[in-house]
Design a protein around this nucleic acid. Sequence first.
DNA 1: GGCTCTACTGCGCAATGCGTAGTACTGTGC
DNA 2: GCACAGTACTACGCATTGCGCAGTAGAGCC
Lengths: 109, 109
Amino acid sequence: MDSSQLLKGVLDLAVLAVLAERDSYGYDVVRRLREAGLEDVGDASVYGTLRRLFKAGALTSYVVASDEGPHRKYYGLNDVGRSLLQTSAKTWTSFAATMNDLLKEVDPG
Amino acid sequence: MDSSQLLKGVLDLAVLAVLAERDSYGYDVVRRLREAGLEDVGDASVYGTLRRLFKAGALTSYVVASDEGPHRKYYGLNDVGRSLLQTSAKTWTSFAATMNDLLKEVDPG
DNA sequence: GGCTCTACTGCGCAATGCGTAGTACTGTGC
DNA sequence: GCACAGTACTACGCATTGCGCAGTAGAGCC
């Protein structure tokens, strides 16, 4: 199975999770997700997700000048985002539990 | 988050898992997935997945007449399917672990 | 001046789950 | 006999969303 498909519907959650820790900008979110283990995440996917979440009203946004390159567009969670994160996390956890249940009878050994 | 998106890339795995238990036909796979907790899975998605997996050479197929309705197209795992199931399960498990890691710092408690 | 790293945007594509309609067989109730 | 529900499958088109790639642009290094 192409692991990239697994991100569908979960990248939002992953992005919200890293933003919950602290405000961040696109390039940095990509780095942090990859460090967390999502090594194959595409940068365009993350930027797209940030834009989508912002458009959906879940994020605040502000621009900060940088010493080592172009300006950075920081994003942070607002109340909508925090609440979205909580409900999404619950949905994910319960879904993952269901899948693990389905799979446990499959264990090869 | 729309929980339907969570199925992306995972429905294959779920279908393979129920077929691993025993051979089954589309209508029955839908029922078993819903009983397992995937209540929102659409029937067309399952039929589509079965056709896709069959076309990919992961399933065998045979038709059986039924007493209580139209014929049933049974599907079962072959070697390719079993191996696909094993690798997909591993990929999923590791991915889920990564996500749980990301989320554990988010816990509202 | 060209190269790399940083940082973001936009375009179009591919995968896949879903809604809906359609076909068709069996059994039940009138 | 006929309408209807339950069973069982197929086909068409849509929406979502992650990705590849190209493009723009600033800062530092050679």
